[in-house]
Structures are given as C-alpha cells and as structure tokens.
Amino acid sequence: MQNRLLGKSGLALTEIGLGCWQLGGDFGPISEADSLAILDQAYQSGVRFYDTADVYGAGLSEQVLGKFYQQHNDICIATKVGRDASLFPGKYTKQGLQQGIESSLQRLGGDSIDLIQLHCIPYPVMQDGEVFTWLQDFKQQGLIQHYGASVESMDEAKLCLNDPQLTSLQLIINIFRQDALSEVLNLAEQKNVGVIARLPYASGLLSGAVTAQRTFADSDHRNYNQNGAAFHVGETFAGLPLEKALSLLEQLTALLPDNRSMAECTIRWLLDQPQITSVITGASKPQQINQNVTYAQQAPLSNELHTRLANFYQQHVSPWVRGNR
C-alpha cells in the first residue's frame, strides 16, 4: 500500500482509507466481532487510515475503532465533529465543540486526535470564521494534532481553503461527481491542503452493488435520502436521481476497455489525481477491502480514457447532479 502526504500536516496516509460509518450500525445491525473483523482485514491489507465520526451510531463506531486502536496504535484516525444535535444546526459554541471533541477522544483513546474534521456544518457557521479560531486554539492546546473540514459543495470547499491552518478537505468526488477537479483540487494544492475523497462508488452505483431490483433497509440512507429528505442530497448516489443514474451507468460502462471493470476504474480514476491523498472506501465485508486495495495497485488509466470520462461527465452527467453548489 502506497502512502501520500496529507497537505501541510506531514501525516502519511495510505492511498486507500477505511470509512467506518457502517460500524455504527446505521446501515443495519452489525456485531462488534464483525466490526473488528472488518478493521482487522483492512489492517492486514495494508490500510492504516481510518475515518469515522462522533454521530456514527451515536459514538459506537468510534468506540469500536478505539478498541482496535489499543492493539494497533500505528494507524491514523480521523474523526468528525459538528453534526451532533447538541451543536447542529445552530448551537455552535467553543465549549460545545470542545466537549464533542473530548468525548470522541475518550472513545478513541490516545493523547490527542490525529485529525478532527468539521462534519458538514452549515455554510453560515463556517463563513463567520469563529469555528476555525476555536480549532486553532484546540490545536495549540494539544487536544487535536490537525484539523480539516468535510464539506458537501464546491462553495463550502473554497470557503474553507481561506483558513491558512486548514490541513485537509474531505470531498464527495467520483466519476459521477467531477466538478472538484476543475474547481477545488488545484486551489487545494496551492494552499498545501490535502484532499480526502469520499463516496468513491457513489453509494454503491459505481461498484455494481446497486441495480434497479435492489432494495434497501429502512435505516439505509439509500432508501430514505434519495432526494435529500434527511440530509444533503449529494451524500446519496452523488446527488443523481437513481433511475437516471442507472441509465447513465450503463452508458458509462460501455466506454471502458474490456480488461478493466467499473469498480477498478473508479478507484484508479481518483488515485490518478495527484492532489488526492486518500480515497475512503466503506466495507461491510472483509473481501471488499481486498478488492479496493488491489484496484489501487493497478496501472493508471490512459490519458484517452480520462478524456473520455471527463467528456461523458460534462455532456451527460453534470446536468443531472444535484447539490453541487
């Protein structure tokens, strides 16, 4: 597994990171034993970067990850703060944010948090700027080592890049959501801010896990948030209407060379962007981790294929993407 530096932080992250939302049981019940098996498989496959949040299972994901960290303290853990009901959407205070971070640290263990990320907090709160001052203070105190922001739109990403101490941006980037390439990645590189790509498979669309016949559990956001009813629409199927996305996927697959799968091209397309530090991939089964690591080790896509994918996005996908601004 190759490492890449995360912006100005000096942290070396593995190109593939493990997203730990599913360990909170938000996609359906999962035992602690199964959660630890997924974490262990990721570790055995070379993954050393794990991404979670305080609201994943109301702290359960952090708790399980903290147990794993006790035996594997060479991993890098990034967590998020700011979506808990004690803060979101309009109750942000320095004391409240600090309490949230301290609670995460208690669940995760260790002396301080490697990377804390604002968790898709409202644009006006970020625009006010005070929240970044608080994070700077927490960093100076040693509560956190570095801070970044997980955002949902291009405007939010560019706003966060105004903070000179920002270490990272976590963005929704995939073949079905490419605007960050032209609007954010070069600017982030200029600011020496690392980029963490999330939702690489567009909620399973680009991995082949979603079909017209697929049904989702009531607790699965792919059931209840297809049109942004619960949270930002871009978090589900990259903001595309599902029926249209499946049609586009069929057309897109026809553009690929016979020897490369859609899932492989999805991961390689992201890692071919030099500004991207790590790609967060979720996994509900250990074998999925092995596949993602294998994809990361394949040869880059050809320039011709990159051009083909970019043109397809602009001509056919972009007009249907919701929630990108």
Rank of each mutant, 00 (worst) to 15 (best):
N3E: 12
N3L: 09
G7K: 01
G7V: 04
K8F: 00
G10L: 01
L11D: 07
L13D: 01
G17W: 03
L18E: 09
Q22C: 11
Q22K: 06
L23Q: 09
G24S: 12
G24C: 06
D26Q: 13
A33P: 03
S35D: 05
Q41W: 00
Y50H: 04
D51N: 14
G57F: 01
G59M: 10
G59C: 09
G59R: 08
E62Y: 07
L65C: 08
G66H: 08
F68N: 04
F68D: 03
N73T: 07
C76W: 05
A78I: 01
V81K: 00
G82N: 04
R83F: 02
A85L: 13
F88D: 10
P89H: 09
P89N: 07
G96N: 07
L97R: 03
Q98F: 02
Q99N: 14
I101H: 03
S103P: 00
G109T: 01
G110N: 04
D111H: 10
Q117N: 03
L118T: 08
V125G: 03
D128W: 02
G129F: 09
E130F: 00
Q145A: 11
Y147L: 07
V151W: 06
C160M: 05
L161Y: 05
N162C: 09
D163G: 02
L166K: 05
Q170F: 01
A180H: 11
A180S: 10
E183M: 12
L185D: 06
Q190S: 12
K191H: 13
N192H: 13
N192T: 12
L199S: 15
Y201C: 08
L205A: 09
Q213F: 08
R214W: 01
T215L: 11
D220Y: 10
D220T: 05
H221E: 06
N227T: 13
E235A: 15
T236L: 08
F237N: 09
L240C: 06
L242M: 07
E243K: 14
E243F: 02
E243P: 00
L249Q: 14
T253G: 04
T253R: 14
A254V: 06
L256N: 03
R260K: 14
E264Q: 15
C265L: 09
T266K: 11
R268F: 00
W269F: 15
D272L: 12
I276V: 15
T277I: 02
S278A: 08
I280Q: 04
T281Q: 12
T281F: 11
S284H: 10
K285V: 11
P286S: 08
I289Y: 00
Q291L: 13
N292W: 01
N292H: 14
V293I: 15
Y295N: 07
A296E: 00
Q298Y: 11
L305D: 05
T307F: 03
R308K: 13
R308Q: 14
L309M: 07
Y313T: 06
Q314R: 13
S318I: 04
S318K: 15
S318W: 11
W320E: 14
W320K: 03
V321Y: 03
